[in-house]
Amino acid sequence: MSRAFLVVLDSAGCGHAPDAASFGDEGANTLLHIHERVGLKMPNLMRLGLGQAVGISDVKPEGLHGVAREVSLGKDTPSGHWELSGVPVPWDWHYFPDTTPSFPPEISAQVAKFCGTDGILGDCHASGTEIIERLGEEHMRTGKPICYTSADSVFQIAAHEESFGLDRLQQLCQHMAPILHAMNVGRVIARPFIGTDASSFERTKNRHDYAMEVPSPTLLDWAKADGRATYGIGKIGDIFSGRGVDENRKGFDDVLMGHLSNLVDEAPDGALVFANFVEFDSLYGHRRDPEGYAAHLEWFDAAIGPILAKLRAGDLMLFTADHGNDPTWEGTEHTREQVPVIGAGVGAKDIGQVMFVDVAASVADHLGLSERGPGRSFL
């Protein structure tokens, strides 16, 4: 029985979407601009067809290749992943204004009341690493949590894992999540960090996303309904609120690559493995670091080579992205982009322009699932 591995390179977009101008992103192109700035040596994914999807190679590809377009009105993680799994977002997300303060007073008051403090820190749009460096020492001194947002529909809370407490941070996020979800804020994210001062602060692997519930069954649910084993790697369990996931394996990207390798060895016939590699986005896209992004892409490509070689006859491994985050672009936010769709296990095939929901339909088609969703299979 066939298996399927759906692998998301978080933020690895390949050109502005048709509606990018309405997001302020016309001209953004994450992978092309990295290649133009730094150069990309990715022989494994280029061999499959990444170069054709990005427009940087005319070498005849050996794998499935094309470009996918999103219809959900967002450029964020839940929108992208939900739609890739067959469920476009049926509502408008709530976004906080780029002002200081950013949050309604009643939201800030709820956070402070839970913590027993006379206020919060931050209350603005910010880069996660920058705001921890700027406010981390005051947070440790006062106990006030650091609350910030971005151009995404998100409420993030940073706190010191030891002085504030990881359990306490997670309890705070659990308390705030239903309040913010009722406003159509997509995610509340716990952002723990460690260190003794601004020069040593660093975020830990214990991030946790408290996401809104997906409004209808996804590819993961379809697979479970048909009795298939389902695995999440990285943020997948958080993005889908644990729904449809039998087992989720977490860690930094190097650890996640080990999980993916192990599941290629271990996953039973008929299994679905859904993976997210987030550090392209979190460490390099938001920090506008094209050199670091390029190096991480090349690390990924080198590491995926031996894994591709282990795929069984009948396996499908698709590589795609959920949005863009052009590290050469202005600001620090995601960019509204189309994404590459590259596949191993089904031979050479140019699928051209497809939609995000077609990815879910194609994986379901490959697995022989009863449900296909609104998309059309490109297999």
Results as ranks from 00 to 15, higher is better:
W299N: 12
R37K: 13
E266N: 14
G244F: 07
D19A: 10
V278C: 09
Y293L: 10
C173M: 10
V354Y: 04
P61V: 05
V341S: 01
K75C: 09
P18W: 11
Y231W: 09
D209K: 01
A225R: 15
K224V: 06
Q170W: 14
E70R: 01
P327F: 13
V214P: 02
E291F: 12
H208V: 12
M212N: 07
V214M: 02
A159C: 15
R3T: 00
D92K: 14
P18G: 03
M46N: 06
P18E: 11
I239F: 00
A190T: 07
T218P: 07
V363R: 02
Y231E: 03
D350H: 13
I233P: 00
E202S: 12
S85T: 12
F280K: 08
D253E: 14
L169S: 08
G324Y: 05
E26V: 11
D289V: 02
C124D: 14
E291V: 11
K349S: 03
S200H: 07
M1G: 11
I189T: 05
G39A: 03
G244W: 08
V59R: 15
G74R: 09
F103C: 09
R191S: 08
L6C: 02
K349C: 06
G24H: 03
G373R: 01
L169N: 01
G234N: 08
E70F: 06
S57V: 04
A68M: 05
G15F: 04
M176S: 10
I307F: 04
P340S: 14
T335A: 07
G143T: 09
T30A: 07
A344R: 12
D253M: 15
A360N: 00
P105I: 12
H323A: 03
R372T: 02
S102L: 02
G119H: 05
L311R: 06
L308C: 07
V245M: 04
